[in-house]
Nucleic acid binder design. Structure first.
Length: 497
RNA sequence: GCGUUGUUAGCUCAGCUGGUAGAGCAGGUGACUCUUAAUCACCGGGUCGGGGGUUCGAGUCCCUCACAACGCACCA
Protein backbone atom coordinates (compact mmCIF):
# COMPACT_ATOMS: atom_id res chain seq x y z
CA UNK A 1 0.00 0.00 0.00
CA UNK A 2 1.42 3.33 -0.98
CA UNK A 3 2.62 5.61 1.79
CA UNK A 4 3.52 8.67 -0.22
CA UNK A 5 3.02 12.35 0.45
CA UNK A 6 -0.47 13.66 1.14
CA UNK A 7 -1.14 15.16 -2.28
CA UNK A 8 0.12 12.08 -4.11
CA UNK A 9 -2.37 9.65 -2.58
CA UNK A 10 -4.68 7.42 -4.59
CA UNK A 11 -8.01 9.09 -5.16
CA UNK A 12 -10.00 7.13 -2.58
CA UNK A 13 -7.53 7.72 0.23
CA UNK A 14 -7.24 11.40 -0.66
CA UNK A 15 -11.01 11.91 -0.59
CA UNK A 16 -11.35 10.36 2.84
CA UNK A 17 -8.61 12.57 4.22
CA UNK A 18 -10.41 15.55 2.75
CA UNK A 19 -13.64 14.43 4.42
CA UNK A 20 -11.83 14.17 7.73
CA UNK A 21 -10.56 17.71 7.32
CA UNK A 22 -14.03 18.93 6.31
CA UNK A 23 -15.56 17.37 9.43
CA UNK A 24 -13.06 19.21 11.61
CA UNK A 25 -13.64 22.50 9.82
CA UNK A 26 -17.37 22.12 10.44
CA UNK A 27 -16.64 21.91 14.14
CA UNK A 28 -17.08 18.14 14.62
CA UNK A 29 -14.53 15.65 15.89
CA UNK A 30 -13.78 12.69 13.59
CA UNK A 31 -12.11 10.92 16.53
CA UNK A 32 -14.07 11.79 19.68
CA UNK A 33 -12.92 10.54 23.07
CA UNK A 34 -16.21 8.75 23.63
CA UNK A 35 -19.58 8.19 21.98
CA UNK A 36 -22.94 7.02 23.34
CA UNK A 37 -23.35 3.24 23.60
CA UNK A 38 -26.04 1.75 25.81
CA UNK A 39 -26.02 -1.79 24.39
CA UNK A 40 -24.07 -4.00 22.05
CA UNK A 41 -25.67 -4.91 18.73
CA UNK A 42 -25.75 -8.47 19.97
CA UNK A 43 -27.75 -7.50 23.05
CA UNK A 44 -30.18 -5.44 20.98
CA UNK A 45 -30.73 -8.39 18.67
CA UNK A 46 -31.16 -10.81 21.56
CA UNK A 47 -33.67 -8.62 23.38
CA UNK A 48 -35.77 -7.88 20.32
CA UNK A 49 -35.88 -11.28 18.72
CA UNK A 50 -38.88 -12.33 16.66
CA UNK A 51 -40.71 -9.01 16.31
CA UNK A 52 -43.45 -8.63 13.71
CA UNK A 53 -43.08 -6.36 10.68
CA UNK A 54 -43.31 -2.57 11.17
CA UNK A 55 -43.16 -2.50 14.97
CA UNK A 56 -42.08 0.47 17.08
CA UNK A 57 -40.84 -0.86 20.43
CA UNK A 58 -40.60 2.50 22.17
CA UNK A 59 -37.13 1.48 23.41
CA UNK A 60 -34.40 4.05 22.91
CA UNK A 61 -30.85 2.74 22.68
CA UNK A 62 -27.42 3.92 21.64
CA UNK A 63 -25.44 1.46 19.55
CA UNK A 64 -22.08 1.50 17.80
CA UNK A 65 -20.75 -0.34 14.83
CA UNK A 66 -18.80 -0.23 11.62
CA UNK A 67 -20.71 0.89 8.54
CA UNK A 68 -20.46 -2.07 6.17
CA UNK A 69 -23.31 -1.29 3.83
CA UNK A 70 -24.89 2.02 2.97
CA UNK A 71 -27.90 2.94 0.86
CA UNK A 72 -28.48 6.66 0.63
CA UNK A 73 -31.94 7.08 -0.79
CA UNK A 74 -33.63 10.49 -0.82
CA UNK A 75 -35.17 11.16 2.57
CA UNK A 76 -34.75 7.76 4.23
CA UNK A 77 -31.27 6.27 4.37
CA UNK A 78 -30.21 2.80 5.41
CA UNK A 79 -26.93 1.46 6.71
CA UNK A 80 -25.83 -1.84 8.14
CA UNK A 81 -23.66 -1.68 11.23
CA UNK A 82 -21.41 -4.55 12.23
CA UNK A 83 -19.64 -5.09 15.53
CA UNK A 84 -16.57 -7.15 16.43
CA UNK A 85 -17.77 -10.74 16.35
CA UNK A 86 -20.01 -10.14 13.36
CA UNK A 87 -23.45 -9.19 14.68
CA UNK A 88 -25.14 -6.70 12.38
CA UNK A 89 -27.97 -4.26 12.84
CA UNK A 90 -29.64 -1.98 10.34
CA UNK A 91 -29.70 1.73 11.11
CA UNK A 92 -32.27 4.01 9.49
CA UNK A 93 -31.98 7.79 9.08
CA UNK A 94 -35.18 9.58 8.18
CA UNK A 95 -35.53 13.24 7.34
CA UNK A 96 -38.33 13.82 9.86
CA UNK A 97 -36.30 12.33 12.75
CA UNK A 98 -32.79 13.71 12.24
CA UNK A 99 -33.46 16.84 10.19
CA UNK A 100 -32.02 18.06 6.88
CA UNK A 101 -28.65 19.15 8.10
CA UNK A 102 -27.87 15.89 9.93
CA UNK A 103 -29.15 13.74 7.06
CA UNK A 104 -27.00 15.60 4.54
CA UNK A 105 -23.99 15.21 6.79
CA UNK A 106 -24.68 11.48 7.06
CA UNK A 107 -24.75 11.18 3.28
CA UNK A 108 -21.64 13.19 2.59
CA UNK A 109 -19.37 12.51 5.58
CA UNK A 110 -19.90 8.84 6.24
CA UNK A 111 -18.21 6.11 4.18
CA UNK A 112 -18.13 2.36 4.29
CA UNK A 113 -15.75 1.36 7.05
CA UNK A 114 -16.44 4.30 9.37
CA UNK A 115 -17.31 3.58 13.00
CA UNK A 116 -20.45 5.35 14.16
CA UNK A 117 -22.72 5.69 17.17
CA UNK A 118 -26.46 5.84 16.53
CA UNK A 119 -29.09 6.76 19.11
CA UNK A 120 -32.75 6.06 18.44
CA UNK A 121 -35.71 3.76 18.75
CA UNK A 122 -35.51 0.02 18.14
CA UNK A 123 -38.04 -0.81 15.44
CA UNK A 124 -38.69 -3.24 12.65
CA UNK A 125 -38.86 -1.89 9.11
CA UNK A 126 -41.71 -2.41 6.69
CA UNK A 127 -39.69 -5.32 5.37
CA UNK A 128 -39.37 -6.74 8.88
CA UNK A 129 -35.70 -5.94 9.40
CA UNK A 130 -34.76 -5.17 13.00
CA UNK A 131 -33.40 -1.63 12.95
CA UNK A 132 -32.50 1.37 14.99
CA UNK A 133 -34.31 4.48 13.78
CA UNK A 134 -31.90 7.30 14.46
CA UNK A 135 -32.79 10.36 16.46
CA UNK A 136 -29.15 11.40 16.46
CA UNK A 137 -25.91 9.92 15.23
CA UNK A 138 -22.24 10.65 15.69
CA UNK A 139 -19.03 9.60 14.02
CA UNK A 140 -16.97 7.44 16.40
CA UNK A 141 -13.91 7.10 14.17
CA UNK A 142 -13.35 7.94 10.52
CA UNK A 143 -11.80 5.25 8.33
CA UNK A 144 -9.24 6.70 5.96
CA UNK A 145 -9.10 3.57 3.83
CA UNK A 146 -11.85 1.92 1.83
CA UNK A 147 -13.01 -1.56 2.79
CA UNK A 148 -12.50 -4.34 0.24
CA UNK A 149 -15.50 -5.73 -1.62
CA UNK A 150 -17.64 -7.82 0.73
CA UNK A 151 -18.78 -10.27 -1.85
CA UNK A 152 -15.49 -11.11 -3.54
CA UNK A 153 -13.14 -12.88 -1.15
CA UNK A 154 -9.80 -11.16 -0.63
CA UNK A 155 -6.81 -13.04 -1.95
CA UNK A 156 -5.09 -15.29 0.54
CA UNK A 157 -2.10 -12.99 0.63
CA UNK A 158 -4.09 -9.83 1.31
CA UNK A 159 -5.96 -11.62 4.11
CA UNK A 160 -2.72 -12.61 5.81
CA UNK A 161 -1.04 -9.25 5.32
CA UNK A 162 -4.05 -7.26 6.51
CA UNK A 163 -5.70 -9.55 9.04
CA UNK A 164 -7.47 -6.60 10.65
CA UNK A 165 -9.35 -6.09 7.40
CA UNK A 166 -9.91 -9.82 7.04
CA UNK A 167 -11.48 -9.85 10.52
CA UNK A 168 -13.83 -7.02 9.57
CA UNK A 169 -14.87 -8.59 6.30
CA UNK A 170 -14.76 -12.37 6.54
CA UNK A 171 -16.89 -14.43 8.95
CA UNK A 172 -14.46 -17.38 8.88
CA UNK A 173 -11.63 -15.13 10.03
CA UNK A 174 -13.74 -13.88 12.92
CA UNK A 175 -14.75 -17.35 14.00
CA UNK A 176 -11.20 -18.70 13.75
CA UNK A 177 -9.88 -15.85 15.88
CA UNK A 178 -12.38 -16.89 18.55
CA UNK A 179 -12.13 -20.64 18.00
CA UNK A 180 -8.46 -20.72 18.83
CA UNK A 181 -8.76 -19.27 22.35
CA UNK A 182 -11.80 -21.49 22.96
CA UNK A 183 -9.66 -24.53 22.14
CA UNK A 184 -6.88 -23.20 24.38
CA UNK A 185 -9.33 -22.83 27.23
CA UNK A 186 -10.65 -26.35 26.67
CA UNK A 187 -7.13 -27.79 26.70
CA UNK A 188 -6.32 -26.04 29.96
CA UNK A 189 -9.63 -27.18 31.47
CA UNK A 190 -8.90 -30.76 30.43
CA UNK A 191 -5.48 -30.63 32.06
CA UNK A 192 -6.83 -28.96 35.19
CA UNK A 193 -9.54 -31.62 35.55
CA UNK A 194 -6.76 -34.21 35.71
CA UNK A 195 -4.58 -32.28 38.19
CA UNK A 196 -1.95 -31.30 35.66
CA UNK A 197 0.00 -28.15 36.52
CA UNK A 198 0.83 -25.57 33.86
CA UNK A 199 4.36 -24.19 33.89
CA UNK A 200 6.25 -21.70 31.76
CA UNK A 201 9.80 -22.66 30.89
CA UNK A 202 12.45 -20.61 29.12
CA UNK A 203 12.02 -19.56 25.52
CA UNK A 204 15.49 -18.04 25.46
CA UNK A 205 17.87 -20.89 26.08
CA UNK A 206 21.59 -21.17 26.54
CA UNK A 207 21.52 -24.48 24.72
CA UNK A 208 18.84 -25.87 22.50
CA UNK A 209 17.57 -29.39 22.94
CA UNK A 210 14.59 -31.64 23.28
CA UNK A 211 14.12 -32.08 19.55
CA UNK A 212 16.15 -32.32 16.40
CA UNK A 213 15.70 -29.06 14.58
CA UNK A 214 17.68 -25.99 13.57
CA UNK A 215 17.20 -23.18 16.09
CA UNK A 216 17.00 -19.43 15.63
CA UNK A 217 20.05 -17.79 17.13
CA UNK A 218 19.95 -14.49 18.96
CA UNK A 219 22.21 -12.54 21.23
CA UNK A 220 22.09 -11.14 24.75
CA UNK A 221 23.73 -7.75 25.19
CA UNK A 222 23.67 -7.97 28.99
CA UNK A 223 25.37 -11.36 29.14
CA UNK A 224 27.33 -10.86 25.92
CA UNK A 225 26.47 -14.32 24.72
CA UNK A 226 24.68 -16.27 22.05
CA UNK A 227 21.20 -17.50 22.95
CA UNK A 228 18.80 -19.83 21.20
CA UNK A 229 15.08 -19.51 20.79
CA UNK A 230 13.80 -22.80 22.05
CA UNK A 231 12.89 -25.61 19.69
CA UNK A 232 11.11 -27.55 22.46
CA UNK A 233 10.41 -27.20 26.21
CA UNK A 234 11.07 -30.90 26.81
CA UNK A 235 14.26 -30.76 28.82
CA UNK A 236 12.85 -28.20 31.24
CA UNK A 237 9.56 -30.05 31.69
CA UNK A 238 11.53 -33.16 32.57
CA UNK A 239 13.43 -31.13 35.17
CA UNK A 240 9.99 -30.31 36.59
CA UNK A 241 9.09 -34.00 36.77
CA UNK A 242 12.38 -34.74 38.56
CA UNK A 243 11.43 -32.02 41.03
CA UNK A 244 8.13 -33.70 41.79
CA UNK A 245 5.73 -31.80 39.54
CA UNK A 246 4.39 -35.17 38.56
CA UNK A 247 1.75 -34.02 36.11
CA UNK A 248 2.97 -31.06 34.16
CA UNK A 249 2.20 -29.33 30.88
CA UNK A 250 3.12 -26.24 28.93
CA UNK A 251 1.29 -24.60 26.06
CA UNK A 252 3.52 -22.11 24.33
CA UNK A 253 5.50 -21.18 21.28
CA UNK A 254 8.45 -23.02 19.80
CA UNK A 255 10.68 -21.72 17.05
CA UNK A 256 12.29 -23.77 14.31
CA UNK A 257 14.51 -22.32 11.65
CA UNK A 258 13.22 -24.53 8.88
CA UNK A 259 11.02 -24.47 5.83
CA UNK A 260 7.55 -22.98 5.94
CA UNK A 261 4.60 -24.40 4.04
CA UNK A 262 0.87 -25.03 4.42
CA UNK A 263 1.45 -27.09 7.58
CA UNK A 264 4.67 -25.59 8.96
CA UNK A 265 5.23 -22.18 10.48
CA UNK A 266 8.62 -20.97 11.84
CA UNK A 267 6.92 -20.21 15.14
CA UNK A 268 4.23 -22.60 16.25
CA UNK A 269 2.31 -23.29 19.41
CA UNK A 270 2.80 -26.64 21.03
CA UNK A 271 1.53 -28.55 24.00
CA UNK A 272 3.95 -30.72 25.85
CA UNK A 273 2.88 -32.79 28.79
CA UNK A 274 4.52 -35.32 31.09
CA UNK A 275 2.88 -37.74 33.45
CA UNK A 276 4.99 -39.38 36.13
CA UNK A 277 4.22 -43.07 36.62
CA UNK A 278 2.44 -43.01 33.29
CA UNK A 279 3.69 -44.43 30.01
CA UNK A 280 3.02 -44.19 26.28
CA UNK A 281 -0.42 -45.76 26.76
CA UNK A 282 -1.62 -43.48 29.55
CA UNK A 283 -0.36 -40.44 27.68
CA UNK A 284 -2.13 -41.62 24.51
CA UNK A 285 -5.39 -41.79 26.46
CA UNK A 286 -4.77 -38.26 27.73
CA UNK A 287 -4.09 -37.01 24.21
CA UNK A 288 -7.32 -38.53 22.94
CA UNK A 289 -9.26 -36.84 25.75
CA UNK A 290 -7.69 -33.47 25.01
CA UNK A 291 -8.72 -33.67 21.35
CA UNK A 292 -12.20 -35.01 22.00
CA UNK A 293 -12.93 -32.54 24.78
CA UNK A 294 -11.73 -29.67 22.59
CA UNK A 295 -14.06 -30.79 19.77
CA UNK A 296 -16.93 -31.06 22.25
CA UNK A 297 -16.14 -27.65 23.76
CA UNK A 298 -16.10 -25.74 20.50
CA UNK A 299 -18.57 -27.69 18.35
CA UNK A 300 -20.63 -29.61 20.89
CA UNK A 301 -19.90 -32.87 19.09
CA UNK A 302 -17.04 -35.23 18.30
CA UNK A 303 -18.02 -35.20 14.63
CA UNK A 304 -16.48 -31.98 13.39
CA UNK A 305 -17.57 -30.33 10.17
CA UNK A 306 -14.85 -28.71 8.11
CA UNK A 307 -15.26 -25.44 6.26
CA UNK A 308 -15.70 -27.30 2.98
CA UNK A 309 -18.52 -29.42 4.43
CA UNK A 310 -16.54 -32.62 4.97
CA UNK A 311 -16.98 -34.24 8.35
CA UNK A 312 -14.37 -35.91 10.51
CA UNK A 313 -15.31 -38.23 13.35
CA UNK A 314 -12.95 -37.74 16.30
CA UNK A 315 -15.18 -39.68 18.69
CA UNK A 316 -15.03 -43.14 20.24
CA UNK A 317 -11.96 -45.33 20.42
CA UNK A 318 -9.20 -44.60 17.94
CA UNK A 319 -7.53 -47.18 15.80
CA UNK A 320 -4.10 -48.36 16.92
CA UNK A 321 -1.68 -50.11 14.60
CA UNK A 322 1.98 -50.89 14.75
CA UNK A 323 4.23 -49.11 12.32
CA UNK A 324 5.63 -52.38 11.00
CA UNK A 325 2.16 -53.87 10.48
CA UNK A 326 1.21 -50.88 8.37
CA UNK A 327 4.43 -51.16 6.40
CA UNK A 328 3.82 -54.89 5.87
CA UNK A 329 0.30 -54.18 4.63
CA UNK A 330 1.64 -51.53 2.30
CA UNK A 331 4.36 -53.59 0.67
CA UNK A 332 2.36 -56.86 0.77
CA UNK A 333 5.08 -58.77 2.58
CA UNK A 334 6.08 -59.05 6.19
CA UNK A 335 8.41 -56.32 7.35
CA UNK A 336 9.74 -56.28 10.93
CA UNK A 337 12.23 -54.22 12.91
CA UNK A 338 14.72 -56.93 12.02
CA UNK A 339 14.20 -56.64 8.26
CA UNK A 340 17.55 -55.79 6.75
CA UNK A 341 18.47 -52.55 5.05
CA UNK A 342 18.91 -54.37 1.73
CA UNK A 343 15.42 -55.90 1.90
CA UNK A 344 13.87 -52.55 2.79
CA UNK A 345 15.71 -50.92 -0.08
CA UNK A 346 14.33 -53.57 -2.43
CA UNK A 347 10.77 -52.78 -1.25
CA UNK A 348 11.40 -49.07 -1.64
CA UNK A 349 12.70 -49.41 -5.18
CA UNK A 350 9.73 -51.63 -6.07
CA UNK A 351 7.45 -48.83 -4.82
CA UNK A 352 9.22 -46.39 -7.09
CA UNK A 353 10.75 -44.39 -4.22
CA UNK A 354 14.07 -42.67 -4.54
CA UNK A 355 16.26 -43.77 -1.66
CA UNK A 356 18.56 -41.23 -0.06
CA UNK A 357 21.86 -43.00 0.71
CA UNK A 358 22.10 -41.01 3.95
CA UNK A 359 19.06 -42.84 5.37
CA UNK A 360 19.77 -45.37 8.07
CA UNK A 361 17.66 -48.53 8.31
CA UNK A 362 15.02 -47.10 10.61
CA UNK A 363 14.72 -43.93 8.58
CA UNK A 364 14.20 -46.01 5.45
CA UNK A 365 11.43 -47.97 7.21
CA UNK A 366 9.72 -44.71 8.22
CA UNK A 367 10.02 -43.37 4.69
CA UNK A 368 8.38 -46.51 3.30
CA UNK A 369 5.63 -46.11 5.90
CA UNK A 370 4.98 -42.54 4.82
CA UNK A 371 5.00 -43.54 1.18
CA UNK A 372 2.51 -46.41 1.51
CA UNK A 373 0.11 -44.61 3.85
CA UNK A 374 0.23 -41.28 2.00
CA UNK A 375 -3.20 -39.67 2.08
CA UNK A 376 -4.77 -42.64 3.88
CA UNK A 377 -4.55 -41.92 7.60
CA UNK A 378 -7.53 -39.58 7.81
CA UNK A 379 -9.45 -40.98 10.77
CA UNK A 380 -7.42 -40.65 13.97
CA UNK A 381 -4.91 -43.46 14.35
CA UNK A 382 -2.10 -44.11 16.80
CA UNK A 383 0.84 -45.54 14.88
CA UNK A 384 2.92 -47.39 17.46
CA UNK A 385 6.44 -48.73 17.79
CA UNK A 386 9.14 -46.77 15.95
CA UNK A 387 12.64 -47.98 15.04
CA UNK A 388 15.13 -47.55 17.84
CA UNK A 389 17.81 -45.91 15.71
CA UNK A 390 15.68 -42.87 14.80
CA UNK A 391 14.40 -42.15 18.32
CA UNK A 392 17.38 -41.47 20.56
CA UNK A 393 15.43 -40.14 23.53
CA UNK A 394 12.84 -42.90 23.87
CA UNK A 395 12.82 -46.01 26.01
CA UNK A 396 13.11 -49.38 24.25
CA UNK A 397 9.90 -51.37 23.85
CA UNK A 398 9.36 -53.57 26.89
CA UNK A 399 8.75 -56.73 24.78
CA UNK A 400 9.55 -56.23 21.11
CA UNK A 401 13.24 -55.80 20.30
CA UNK A 402 14.32 -53.15 17.80
CA UNK A 403 11.58 -50.66 18.48
CA UNK A 404 10.85 -48.00 21.05
CA UNK A 405 7.70 -47.10 22.95
CA UNK A 406 6.78 -44.19 20.74
CA UNK A 407 3.55 -43.44 18.91
CA UNK A 408 2.56 -40.85 16.38
CA UNK A 409 -1.03 -39.72 16.18
CA UNK A 410 -2.15 -39.15 12.60
CA UNK A 411 -5.29 -37.23 11.71
CA UNK A 412 -6.23 -35.98 8.25
CA UNK A 413 -3.02 -37.47 6.92
CA UNK A 414 -0.72 -35.34 9.04
CA UNK A 415 1.07 -35.96 12.32
CA UNK A 416 -0.93 -34.29 15.07
CA UNK A 417 0.89 -35.51 18.16
CA UNK A 418 3.62 -37.82 19.34
CA UNK A 419 4.05 -39.66 22.62
CA UNK A 420 6.66 -41.76 24.41
CA UNK A 421 7.55 -43.82 27.35
CA UNK A 422 10.40 -41.53 28.31
CA UNK A 423 13.96 -42.67 28.62
CA UNK A 424 14.90 -42.15 32.28
CA UNK A 425 18.22 -43.94 32.69
CA UNK A 426 20.68 -41.03 33.01
CA UNK A 427 23.64 -43.10 31.87
CA UNK A 428 21.92 -44.17 28.64
CA UNK A 429 20.60 -40.62 28.24
CA UNK A 430 24.15 -39.26 28.40
CA UNK A 431 25.38 -41.80 25.84
CA UNK A 432 22.63 -40.77 23.43
CA UNK A 433 23.34 -37.07 23.86
CA UNK A 434 27.05 -37.63 23.33
CA UNK A 435 26.19 -39.38 20.06
CA UNK A 436 24.08 -36.39 19.10
CA UNK A 437 26.87 -33.98 19.96
CA UNK A 438 29.24 -35.98 17.77
CA UNK A 439 26.80 -35.60 14.91
CA UNK A 440 26.76 -31.89 15.68
CA UNK A 441 30.54 -31.74 15.58
CA UNK A 442 30.35 -33.35 12.14
CA UNK A 443 28.16 -30.50 10.97
CA UNK A 444 24.64 -31.77 11.60
CA UNK A 445 22.92 -28.45 12.40
CA UNK A 446 19.92 -30.19 13.88
CA UNK A 447 21.79 -32.34 16.37
CA UNK A 448 21.21 -31.76 20.07
CA UNK A 449 23.83 -30.27 22.33
CA UNK A 450 24.90 -31.85 25.61
CA UNK A 451 22.94 -30.14 28.34
CA UNK A 452 24.95 -30.96 31.44
CA UNK A 453 22.43 -29.43 33.78
CA UNK A 454 19.67 -31.54 32.28
CA UNK A 455 21.78 -34.67 32.71
CA UNK A 456 22.52 -33.71 36.31
CA UNK A 457 18.77 -33.37 36.89
CA UNK A 458 18.21 -36.82 35.39
CA UNK A 459 20.88 -38.21 37.70
CA UNK A 460 18.70 -37.23 40.66
CA UNK A 461 16.23 -39.80 39.22
CA UNK A 462 13.18 -39.05 37.13
CA UNK A 463 10.24 -41.37 37.76
CA UNK A 464 8.98 -43.62 34.97
CA UNK A 465 7.10 -41.14 32.79
CA UNK A 466 4.90 -40.86 29.76
CA UNK A 467 5.30 -37.74 27.64
CA UNK A 468 3.53 -36.21 24.67
CA UNK A 469 3.70 -33.24 22.35
CA UNK A 470 0.92 -31.89 20.17
CA UNK A 471 0.87 -28.99 17.75
CA UNK A 472 -1.87 -26.54 18.70
CA UNK A 473 -2.01 -25.10 15.20
CA UNK A 474 -2.38 -28.60 13.86
CA UNK A 475 -5.12 -29.40 16.33
CA UNK A 476 -7.00 -26.41 14.92
CA UNK A 477 -6.30 -27.67 11.42
CA UNK A 478 -7.77 -31.05 12.37
CA UNK A 479 -10.83 -29.39 13.88
CA UNK A 480 -11.47 -27.00 10.98
CA UNK A 481 -9.75 -28.48 7.92
CA UNK A 482 -7.96 -25.15 7.31
CA UNK A 483 -4.30 -24.55 6.50
CA UNK A 484 -1.88 -23.54 9.23
CA UNK A 485 -1.74 -19.90 8.07
CA UNK A 486 -5.49 -19.65 8.56
CA UNK A 487 -5.20 -20.86 12.16
CA UNK A 488 -2.58 -18.21 13.03
CA UNK A 489 -3.76 -14.62 13.23
CA UNK A 490 -0.48 -13.11 12.11
CA UNK A 491 1.69 -15.70 10.36
CA UNK A 492 5.15 -14.60 9.37
CA UNK A 493 5.22 -12.89 5.97
CA UNK A 494 8.07 -11.07 4.36
CA UNK A 495 7.63 -7.33 3.92
CA UNK A 496 6.30 -6.40 0.54
CA UNK A 497 9.24 -4.14 -0.29
C1' G B 1 17.59 -24.14 -0.74
C1' C B 2 15.75 -26.04 -6.01
C1' G B 3 11.72 -26.06 -9.71
C1' U B 4 6.91 -24.19 -11.76
C1' U B 5 3.33 -20.33 -12.00
C1' G B 6 1.88 -15.58 -10.75
C1' U B 7 2.18 -9.83 -9.45
C1' U B 8 -2.68 -4.89 -14.00
C1' A B 9 -7.50 0.82 -10.34
C1' G B 10 -9.04 0.91 -3.10
C1' C B 11 -10.84 -4.74 -3.63
C1' U B 12 -11.63 -9.01 -7.06
C1' C B 13 -10.25 -9.93 -11.90
C1' A B 14 -10.08 -9.65 -17.80
C1' G B 15 -6.54 -8.03 -21.42
C1' C B 16 -5.63 -13.12 -28.14
C1' U B 17 0.05 -14.03 -32.59
C1' G B 18 3.61 -7.13 -29.56
C1' G B 19 0.03 -1.64 -31.84
C1' U B 20 -0.44 2.79 -26.49
C1' A B 21 -5.65 -0.09 -20.59
C1' G B 22 -10.94 -2.74 -19.49
C1' A B 23 -15.13 -4.78 -16.17
C1' G B 24 -17.79 -5.47 -11.47
C1' C B 25 -17.86 -3.62 -6.71
C1' A B 26 -15.87 0.75 -4.31
C1' G B 27 -15.37 6.46 -5.21
C1' G B 28 -17.43 11.72 -6.95
C1' U B 29 -22.03 14.68 -8.63
C1' G B 30 -27.34 14.50 -9.08
C1' A B 31 -32.47 11.87 -8.42
C1' C B 32 -35.41 8.77 -4.98
C1' U B 33 -39.08 8.10 2.78
C1' C B 34 -38.61 0.86 3.29
C1' U B 35 -33.57 -0.22 1.13
C1' U B 36 -30.81 -4.74 2.23
C1' A B 37 -24.74 -7.17 -3.26
C1' A B 38 -30.75 -1.01 -3.82
C1' U B 39 -31.81 1.36 -8.62
C1' C B 40 -31.08 5.24 -12.56
C1' A B 41 -27.96 9.15 -15.07
C1' C B 42 -23.30 11.44 -15.66
C1' C B 43 -18.03 11.63 -14.14
C1' G B 44 -13.17 10.68 -12.20
C1' G B 45 -9.49 6.99 -10.91
C1' G B 46 -3.51 3.16 -13.48
C1' U B 47 4.79 4.69 -13.33
C1' C B 48 0.42 -2.75 -15.74
C1' G B 49 5.65 -5.28 -8.73
C1' G B 50 11.13 -2.67 -9.32
C1' G B 51 15.27 -2.31 -12.77
C1' G B 52 17.50 -3.44 -17.49
C1' G B 53 17.19 -5.33 -22.68
C1' U B 54 15.06 -6.61 -27.79
C1' U B 55 11.80 -3.64 -31.07
C1' C B 56 9.62 1.79 -35.08
C1' G B 57 6.48 0.29 -30.85
C1' A B 58 6.32 -3.91 -24.69
C1' G B 59 1.01 -5.10 -19.71
C1' U B 60 2.32 -8.83 -23.62
C1' C B 61 8.95 -11.23 -25.69
C1' C B 62 14.08 -11.80 -23.03
C1' C B 63 17.31 -10.98 -18.53
C1' U B 64 17.50 -9.64 -13.44
C1' C B 65 15.70 -8.41 -8.50
C1' A B 66 11.61 -8.38 -4.87
C1' C B 67 7.26 -10.69 -3.06
C1' A B 68 3.66 -14.70 -3.28
C1' A B 69 1.30 -19.51 -4.29
C1' C B 70 2.13 -24.57 -5.49
C1' G B 71 5.54 -28.83 -5.90
C1' C B 72 10.31 -31.08 -4.06
C1' A B 73 13.88 -31.23 0.17
C1' C B 74 13.74 -30.72 5.86
C1' C B 75 10.39 -30.85 9.80
C1' A B 76 5.70 -30.77 14.04
Amino acid sequence: MPQTSEDDLPEQLRIRREKRAAIISRGFDPYPVSVPRSKSLKAVRAENDGLEIDIATGKIESVTGRVIFKRDTGKLCFANLREGEGTELQAMFSLDKVGVESLERWKSEIDLGDLVSVTGEIITSKRGELSILANTWQLAAKSLRPLPVEHKPMSEETRVRARYVDLIVRPEARSMARLRPAVMRSLRDSFAARDFIEVETPMLQVMHGGATARPFITESNAYDMELFLRIAPELFLKRCVVGGIERVFEINRNFRNEGADSSHSPEFAMIESYEAYGDWNSIAALTKSLVQEAAMAVFGTHVVTHHDGRTLDLGGEWREASLYELISEGVGEEVTPQTSYEELKLHATKLGMKVDPKWITGKLAEEIFEHVTEGQLNAPIFVKGYPVDTSPLVRAHRETPGIVEKWDLYVEGFELATGYSELIDPVVQRERLVEQAQLGAKGDLEAMQIDEDFLRAMEFAMPPTGGMGMGVDRLLMALTGLGIRETILFPLVKPEE
